[in-house]
């Protein structure tokens, strides 16, 4: 088991793909985004949203991410039932590189593990919305740093769309958001 597999988040995200509510709308070949925490204040629901998107996969060229097709929702504690929604738009638009350029295999997967680990650490803080210690800010900062480094730049506007409240919270805690995310 490698480091990424050790995170609950990664395992829950993988499980969602094969969930009966999702496997009929998620193709095998799709890539998935990094899960983003969300909360619905009215209902008190807290969970994660993840995007599944087509990606070009050739051994001679960098992979290109296309507009996401499926939005999945899951939680770690079962508070939100797993489900997926597919877009009805059959026109797919290539958005940009799926993996940022210049990363080695080791650096990419290490970065992704760090990202998931930090996301697991900061999500309870976001859900609790309580005051933060210096160590918490450090974890938020580490999350943003890795997010900028390994996430798909072409999907940044979609990441924002998934949970604006989460990104506002990040910004409120002194972090500079990735450039294409709308300034608050």
């Amino acid at each position: 088991m490698d480091r990424l597999d050790a995170t609950k988040l990664s395992r829950a995200e993988n499980k969602l793909r094969f969930d009966s509510g999702c496997s009929h709308v998620i193709p095998e070949e799709f890539a998935h985004s990094i899960p983003i925490p969300f909360k619905i204040k009215k209902t008190g629901e807290m969970g994660f949203k993840v995007l599944f998107y087509p990606v070009t996969t050739e051994s001679q060229a960098p992979s290109m991410a296309a507009s996401p097709f499926v939005e999945g929702i899951f939680s770690l504690d079962g508070s939100v039932p797993d489900h997926c929604t597919a877009t009805t738009d059959q026109k797919v638009k290539i958005l940009g590189r799926a993996v940022p350029s210049g990363l080695s295999m080791v650096s990419y997967y290490r970065g992704k593990s760090l990202l998931y680990e930090n996301l697991e650490r900061i999500t309870p803080l976001y859900f609790a919305d309580s005051s933060l210690a210096a160590g918490d800010i450090k974890n938020i900062s580490a999350f943003v740093r890795e997010f900028k480094r390994v996430s798909e730049p072409a999907l940044w506007p979609d990441y924002y769309r998934l949970s604006p409240d989460f990104w506002n919270w990040i910004q409120k805690n002194g972090q500079v958001l990735p450039a294409p995310l709308p300034p608050q």
Binding site: F30, P62, S63, R97, Y108
Partner: peptide, 19 residues
Amino acid sequence: VGVEAGRLWHLPDVSGAHE
């Protein structure tokens, strides 16, 4: 078997699942 193409091909800038 489903695999991550980039990891199988040792190509860091390739992603996407592959059978």
